[in-house]
Amino acid sequence: MKTTDIYGLPYIEAGDLVSAAPAQFKTMAEGIETALAEVDSRNTPAGVKPVIATTLEALAAQTGVTGQTGYVTADTTTANNGPYFWNGSAWLPYATGGMLDDLRNQLTQGYESGTFSGQTNGDAVAEISWKSHTTKPAGMVVTRLRIDNQSDDSTVYIVPYLWSLRPGSAWVRFRNNLMNTWATTYAVSFCWFAWWD
């Protein structure tokens, strides 16, 4: 027998033997009864009332109804204070604003990206400054974008080169391969992606 995803209700499959039908029907009935008991217990005063404890250890010593909220109010480890929910076997913390900020920072701490639109300087360089990193990245990718008023030839022959990776910035230098010169004070647009180890 297999079970449903949400409440774990057992059901008969095509390969199940008819000779096992009584036991299978009993298992199905007990699965439905367990699911109904869980739903009913959520609608009781005990099931909807939050479980309050002064420490995480005290909260962990109590059980709840699946989905029930619990609170830790005065733990000496301040990170333990706050809302929790009972998942059926343990109290797990709800994601707080601080937790989400930390997760967002972890997800973005390893890379930066952006688009540059402007002119190269007298050395044919466009400089990108890092927004949230102070160390040199492990690598960077640059992809040239076509500017609306530029010809197709200009887009094809003006080529970006990643010239320098630094702790505070990167230099992207542009070469005019049609004229065999550097593209100084030239309007360019490109996307870039840099990553850190």
Rank of each mutant, 00 (worst) to 15 (best):
Q68A: 07
I32S: 01
G98I: 08
E57A: 15
S189D: 06
R173I: 06
N149M: 01
G110K: 08
V156D: 09
A74N: 15
V48I: 11
D197S: 13
D102M: 12
F85M: 11
W163M: 02
T96W: 09
G8A: 07
Q24D: 12
K131D: 11
D102N: 12
D101S: 14
L100F: 06
P22M: 04
S117R: 12
D16M: 07
R104F: 14
E57N: 12
V51E: 05
G139W: 08
D152N: 14
N177R: 14
N105V: 01
L92D: 11
D40N: 07
N87E: 10
A61Y: 03
G47Y: 04
T155Q: 10
A23F: 05
E30H: 05
T44I: 09
E38K: 11
T120S: 05
K2S: 14
M1R: 04
S169C: 13
A194M: 13
L107A: 14
V142F: 07
P10T: 09
A183R: 10
T76I: 08
P10Y: 11
P22W: 06
S129D: 07
W86V: 07
I12S: 06
W130T: 05
L162R: 05
I52M: 15
A21G: 00
T78M: 10
G88M: 10
G88W: 12
Y84F: 13
A23K: 10
E112K: 03
F85C: 01
A138K: 09
A126R: 02
T143P: 00
Y71P: 00
Q109I: 11
D152K: 04
A79P: 00
D102P: 00
D75R: 07
A183F: 07
E38S: 10
N177H: 07
T120H: 06
A21V: 13
N105Y: 08
R104N: 14
D75M: 07
A53T: 07
I52Y: 15
V51A: 06
P167G: 10
G97E: 12
Q150V: 03
Y161M: 12
L36F: 12
N87V: 06
A21C: 01
N105P: 00
Q68H: 11
A61W: 01
A170H: 02
W130E: 04
V156Y: 11
D153L: 07
K26E: 14
E112A: 12
S132Q: 13
A29N: 08
F174V: 09
N176V: 08
P137M: 09
G114N: 08
P137G: 08
P22S: 12
P45A: 08
P45L: 13
K136D: 01
V188P: 03
L9S: 01
T96I: 04
D148E: 15
R104L: 13
D148F: 02
Y71E: 05
A170C: 05
G82R: 02
T78G: 01
P45E: 12
T76G: 08
V141R: 09
Y84D: 06
G47R: 03
P10S: 15
P137E: 12
T77M: 09
T73A: 01
A46G: 03
E33A: 15
P10M: 13
G8M: 06
L59T: 09
T96R: 11
A60H: 14
F25I: 07
L100Q: 12
R144Y: 02
W171Y: 15
G168E: 11
